[in-house]
Write a protein that binds this DNA or RNA. Structure first.
Lengths: 337, 337
DNA sequence: CCCGAGTTGTATAACGATGTAAAATCTGCC
DNA sequence: GGCAGATTTTACATCGTTATACAACTCGGG
């Protein structure tokens, strides 16, 4: 098939290893030898066979990034950032999606593709702590996102309670009183949404706002459709919130759509805050106020943490890294200037 | 590191090759031998080392999909579909983005990662015909998307002229007279946008609508931002179209945003048609009429064409495959029911 | 002129799998 | 029992690379 070290070696009249040395920039090679070999390399257009290199080295130079959905712009944008950053460090990123289903997440954590990748960045939704503890694979794993686990793995996530508090506080600040929450998750104490819900609850109670269960809408997933349906249910049940804090921007977009259908104005009748700062929110007919996690910082932290573990011989204690976030106020809360 | 055939062979008291035979389902193995080996495999949790297998076989079992931007939902959704379909055929998909820059596209076409992947599905934007003809790599290549080339590669694309005609005809049908086009591309006869522009021109002239250059807005890229700016330029130049056909949904979303800012109503003042049928358009405050290419069919056709070439010994003549499309009418042209 | 230290280059053995060809074993039948 | 013919199993080479260990060469100093 391709041109191998052997071909180059033969043509240049040196041993295979010498060519390898030139390719790898090994020090002890005479300038003339190096030049001669290099010329042949260029002539033949030699390119190292990564498969063979990886077999020999026991590393593949690939890491996987498994997110719930690529269709969710937040993850697409995050993936972009990870790919970019990893490429700069000579790592290839294999992108995968779990559909947010536990069985898929377990599969990845267990080491699906273990022999193809050196390590994994996983953004779980349904994964349980026990799944992590029962992990068979010993490939480095970095967890991404809001869920909390008691397992010895690096974990990158912004402070979700604080972020949710910021969002809720903003709604209080602009004078809203009946503030709903969309995107809760039934019966999962560790679930992603839990912390954002907690931040909301704290602010509600601190500022004397109602925080009853009737103001909390659970969803199956985190899509626009889920948001639209939840908003509709909320309104149908007779609750008339004057603001909604949504688990993420997609849900907020869905909620906004339902409000438009019902003839309710944003923010005049109902103010909206989302989470993620996806580009879509910046171009909605009513632009979306949102909590913006520092995606680039998250991507960098996750990649660096993983590669550090790949490189590091000694054991490193599992770390918890909290990148920053910022509240971006737009029309869905403060109206058009 | 891991468990190899050798370990299993030793433990089971057979040769390495026999274990390999069991793993690969080779026929001539005694049921008892097979069972004994299988038990040891399960016991030790053996999993084949794909890197080694690939080295030996000369194939990696991976294909790459290179799209302009993962942040563009159309490509994210398409990628989802390709990954899904390829997984069913035991192929792993490596996702990449070119940024729509010619140098990047050339890099991929030339065989960047050639030794890592068996074949490539490329969705080019700026790539020129000469780049393809000068291609060094001999790895199978399938082209995706609207650009047309005279090069011997499979090409998957819907009939863009026909699709554009459908969209334009729809705007005519609802009685619009000054129909603008946003998303043209300066000075590139082969450019992606060219065919959609042509379809628009044809319908305009056939129905006696103006089709002057003042109604055509060029953009640098295909983002929401590009759409917003182009719409603003159009309005600022004194043109007051009563409809706009946008190169894609993202541009349409941007245009819609500008219209909202200027206090113009959709579709009453200006009707809008996009292209791609991204989910975002279904949840905009005013839902977006759009041309919906059959993404799943495209993904399947591209993957199948590539894998067929990978499997096929004999030469196959380059094919041009045209998946279907459909016009989806929503509020941005027909208003709310 | 020889010796040790340092530099440069090579032969060979892995990495973990599969393909080939030959060896070992099992049939059935005379 | 022995032999042809089929079946089952094995030993060994191989894919393209890097690591190891050693051979060859250079150089300065005694």
């Amino acid at each position: 098939m391709g041109i191998s070290l052997k071909d180059v070696a033969q043509r240049a009249g040196v041993s295979i290893k010498t060519v390898s040395n030139v390719v790898n920039g090994y020090r002890h090679v005479t300038p003339e030898t190096r030049q001669r070999v290099q010329r042949v390399i260029d002539e033949l257009g030699y390119r190292p066979n990564l498969t063979a290199r990886h077999l020999r080295k026991g590393r593949t130079g690939m890491i996987a990034l498994a997110v719930p959905e690529l269709g969710n712009p937040y993850f697409a944008e995050l993936a972009d950032a990870v790919i970019e950053h990893a490429a700069g460090l000579d790592y290839i990123v294999l992108l995968d999606h779990t559909g947010g289903r536990r069985d898929q997440e377990v599969l990845f954590a267990q080491g699906f593709r273990a022999r193809v990748i050196d390590g994994l960045i996983l953004s779980p939704i349904e994964l349980e702590n026990e799944d992590l503890l029962a992990r068979g694979s010993d490939a480095p794993l970095v967890l991404l996102g809001e869920r909390q686990y008691d397992a010895p793995y690096d974990h990158i996530a912004i402070d979700n309670v604080a972020a949710a508090r910021t969002a809720a506080a903003h709604l209080v600040e602009i004078g809203r009183r009946r503030i709903a929450f969309i995107g809760a998750r039934h019966g999962r104490a560790r679930a992603t949404a839990h912390q954002r819900l907690r931040g909301w609850r704290e602010v509600m109670s601190e500022t004397g706002r109602p925080a009853g269960e009737d103001l909390v809408a659970a969803t199956d997933g985190y899509t626009r459709e889920d948001g639209a349906q939840a908003m509709a249910r909320l309104l149908d049940s007779g609750i008339r919130p004057d603001a909604v804090f949504c688990y993420n921007d997609l849900i907020a977009v869905g909620a906004m759509r339902t409000l438009a259908e019902r003839g309710l104005r944003v923010p005049d009748d109902v103010a909206l805050v989302g989470f993620d700062d996806i580009e879509e929110g910046r171009y909605a007919a009513t632009t979306l106020t949102t909590v913006a996690p520092h995606k680039r910082a998250i991507a960098r932290a996750a990649t660096d943490a993983l590669l550090e573990r790949l490189a590091g011989e000694g054991e490193i204690a599992p770390r918890r890294i909290q990148p920053g976030f910022a509240l971006v106020t737009r029309e869905s809360t403060v109206g058009r200037p």
